[in-house]
Write a protein that binds this DNA or RNA. Structure first.
Lengths: 227, 227
DNA sequence: ACAAAAGTGTTTCGGCTACACCCATGC
DNA sequence: GCATGGGTGTAGCCGAAACACTTTTGT
């Protein structure tokens, strides 16, 4: 095979996306019911081939858009999986990404029409191939990121309360953060702005809504949370 | 092209290695004088094609072995670089790795015979393609790793003094760590064992040698150093 | 009245920082 | 004696953790 002026054997390259959403105090993963052999009918990460004229990032964006209808998802490379035997159907090199998606904004019908389904992270079916390992690495990477910067912009609705973002962190780390301390820490980095509206659906008293600032002040590298 | 039962267009896949060594209180990078067009004669990371029957890790190990004669190098994936135009010679997807190498143990003649050369990180020539970006990401990743666990096993000689490992950290973070505090912190995690021998070549008084323990006690996630 | 979250304040504790200080030795 | 790194000790500061306490309001 010839590509440009190089002459060497080539590989099938795919991307697999760990698509995460957040709903009802739980992290959820979008899985795809595989339609082809091998492992037909098994639950798979959402993936696709990398086309000749696109980067792996472009491929990941194309695939996440196609299944969710959302253009604005946060994408990050996780790892390359390339053991020759990882896919029984052939030698495929796969680049794993995680994707963070505002679950309330995506197109649920589109997801369903593709045979995909959201699963709570605590109630996952068995995944095909090495997809469980991909998921594990993605979660590790997400936790690391969330410990250095406040995430949620891509997972929460536009407006949210401090309770909601704390519950998001609870879900990510599978632990309970102290309400008072979490609040003070998060507000101290000044990346959120307080709105005038309140959310009264989750507490008697009602909590102020916040949103992420458009431009973030650069904030210190000091760990946001420990885990 | 057909690979197994899948039918899709394929890609050239390469690996590029940011090979780092440590010598004379400086981090050094092994670069390769490129022998083919495009960018013939330019300085390049050490790389190679991924063969049909090997993982990207295997390819990286093969390539680092071939140029250094060392089998025991520490390898870690950094990132996939896949912009369609990144290599003017053709569409090549490259997986960047960093490699840590005990510079005192490697085969200097082998390196020379391949037209490769060690450069101090402060005196680098211009690199071809996106290799400078690869290097930057590798160093960021190395700093992150070094902040969570004590590195040096793959960079320092078997025996070393606390001065030497501190200077390694100075080189990695480009700052001066406090001798007393660094010492206490490093020893507190109990991954080093004190030897009976002393190194008298670097100080009047002579400093005890240490080495990494064979089995490491699991130590806390608390940052080792801040930067 | 009670429950439950909102929001603020306070105390304690551990670890990091910034040093001071003595030791050993070659020059 | 002096400079240099080896090695130990310590006072102070800062931030995290734990938790008390008051507010608000629907039931």
């Amino acid at each position: 095979m010839k590509t440009g002026q190089y002459n060497h054997s080539a590989h099938l390259v795919a991307i697999d996306c760990i698509i995460l959403g957040y709903e009802n105090t739980e992290l959820k993963l979008l899985l795809f019911n595989r339609k082809i052999e091998p492992a037909k009918g098994g639950w798979s990460l959402v993936g696709g081939w990398v086309e000749p004229d696109e980067s792996v990032e472009t491929a990941a964006r194309r695939v996440t858009y196609k299944i969710s209808g959302l253009k604005e998802v946060y994408l990050e490379q996780v790892h390359v999986f390339s053991e020759p035997q990882r896919d029984p159907g052939g030698r495929v090199i796969s680049v794993a990404f995680y994707a963070l998606m505002p679950i309330d904004k995506h197109d649920r019908e589109l997801v369903e029409s593709h045979g995909a389904k959201w699963f709570s992270l605590n109630e996952l079916p068995e995944l095909i191939f090495d997809h469980q390992e991909m998921l594990n690495m993605a979660l590790e990477k997400l936790r690391l990121k969330a410990s250095f910067e406040l995430i949620g912009r891509s997972l929460l609705p536009e407006k949210f309360t401090l309770l909601q973002i704390r519950q998001l962190y609870n879900a990510i780390y599978q632990k309970e953060f102290d309400p008072g301390n979490f609040r003070k820490k998060i507000l101290s980095i000044k990346v959120l702005e307080k709105l005038t509206s309140k959310n009264t659906s989750e507490s008697r008293k009602g909590a102020f809504n916040y949103r992420f600032k458009k431009v973030l002040p650069p904030y210190r590298v000091n760990a946001l949370v420990k885990y």
